[in-house]
Design a protein around this nucleic acid. Structure first.
Length: 119
DNA sequence: GGCGTGACGTCAG
DNA sequence: ACTGACGCCACGC
């Protein structure tokens, strides 16, 4: 994906803003940046650019709080536990650890970055 | 410009 | 609660 893409930029900013000890799901990320349905794309961003942009990629998990299986998922489990996120059998309690940014905070974060134009 | 693909989501059984 | 089928959509070949 091009780094210029609004979808990409918004995703990167949002992911970087996830507080320590909190998590977001792929679907939540996509809807928060006004690109619902693009959950799969979030995964692409993480796998391709988490190093480059120093993303806290371990704080992004699948629906229902389930950690996705990927090359570094073991590292992800360690990171989460280190931040105090309890894991029970590859799962996180979203009610407890799910991040819910306020509308205001969200606006501030994404200020100046155009929304991705959905088809 | 068509076509397969993915660190996903949802729903049925 | 778990599994599989199917839907999804921008990217990249």
């Amino acid at each position: 994906m091009k780094d210029k893409s609004p979808l990409f930029q918004r995703a990167v900013i949002l992911i970087r803003a996830i507080p320590k000890g909190k998590v977001l799901t792929y679907g939540k990320v996509s809807s928060l940046i006004s690109a619902p349905g693009c959950a799969r794309h979030i995964s692409y961003i993480l796998s391709s650019s988490s190093e480059k942009y120093r993303l806290p990629w371990h704080r992004v998990i699948g629906a229902n709080g389930k950690v996705s299986m990927h090359a570094n998922y073991l590292e992800q489990l360690e990171e989460l536990e280190r931040e105090g996120v309890a894991l029970e059998n590859f799962r996180v309690d979203l009610d407890k650890y799910g991040w819910q940014p306020s509308k205001k905070a969200l606006q501030k974060l994404l200020k100046g970055i155009p929304e991705h134009r959905l088809k």
